[in-house]
Amino acid sequence: MLTREEDVLSAAEAWRYAGREVAIATVVETWGSAPRPVGSHLVIDAEGHFLGSVSGGCVEGAVVEEAADVIATGAPRMLEFGVADETAWRAGLSCGGRIRVYVEKLN
C-alpha cells in the first residue's frame, strides 16, 4: 500500500520518541510540471533511512544528504531543484518542473 502523508508524519513522531534524530522535508512550492504536490513530506533519520516522497524519486537522494547536515546543525534550510537550476548537475527533475523543499530538524 502507498504511504500517505499522515503516515509519514506519524512515523516522524514515533521515530523521535524512539530516540532517533529526525528531519522533515516538505515541498513548499512547485512551478510547472512537478511530480509531487505542495505539502508532500519526506522524513529522514540520521542514518539516512527515509519514508515518504517529495519528488517521486528524482531528488530524494540530494534531500537525504542535506537532511544529514540539517540534523547535525539544527538549522532549517530551503532547497530548490529543477532543470534550470545550478543544482541540476547533481539532482534535477526530468519532467522540467521546479520545486522548493524546506528541510527542518524535529526537536
Binding site: L9, S10, E13, Y17, I24, E104, K105, L106, N107
Partner: peptide, 14 residues
C-alpha cells in the same frame, strides 16, 4: 519543527 507541535497536529488528525 518542535515535537510538541507535531504531536498536536498528529493528534488532531487522528
Amino acid at each position: 519543527m518542535r515535537l510538541d507541535v507535531l504531536r498536536a497536529m498528529n493528534a488532531a488528525r487522528r
